[in-house]
Simulated assay, not measured.
Amino acid sequence: MENLGFGLMMTVLGMGIVFTVLVFVWGLLTLLTYFDRPEPATAAEVALAPAVAPTGEGQLTPDEVAAIAVAVAVHTATLRREAAPTVRSYWPGSLLFASRWVAAGRARQNQSWQRRR
Rank of each mutant, 00 (worst) to 15 (best):
M1C: 09
M1R: 12
M1Q: 14
L4H: 11
F6I: 14
F6E: 12
F6H: 06
G7K: 00
G7D: 00
G7R: 04
L8M: 11
M10K: 07
T11M: 13
V12P: 00
V12S: 03
L13C: 04
G14N: 00
M15W: 11
G16A: 00
G16K: 01
F19P: 05
L22D: 06
L22C: 07
L22H: 05
L22I: 06
F24Q: 07
G27A: 07
G27V: 12
G27C: 08
L28R: 04
L28K: 05
T30P: 02
T30R: 14
L31A: 13
L32G: 04
T33V: 08
F35H: 12
D36F: 07
R37D: 00
P40C: 05
A41C: 02
A41Y: 12
A41H: 13
T42M: 04
T42A: 01
A43G: 03
A44L: 08
A47E: 02
A51Q: 15
P54I: 11
T55R: 07
T55M: 07
G56M: 13
G58D: 10
G58I: 00
T61L: 08
D63M: 05
V65K: 06
A67P: 02
V70K: 11
A71I: 05
A73T: 15
T76S: 13
T78D: 06
T78K: 15
L79W: 03
L79H: 06
R80E: 12
R81F: 09
R81T: 11
E82F: 02
A83T: 06
A83Y: 08
T86G: 01
V87M: 12
S89W: 11
S89L: 10
G93S: 08
S94Q: 14
S94M: 08
L96M: 09
A98F: 10
S99F: 10
W101K: 12
V102W: 15
V102E: 15
A103V: 02
A104T: 14
G105P: 03
A107S: 04
R108S: 07
Q109P: 00
Q109Y: 10
S112Y: 06
S112V: 13
W113T: 14
W113L: 15
R115E: 15
R116K: 13
R117I: 03
R117G: 13
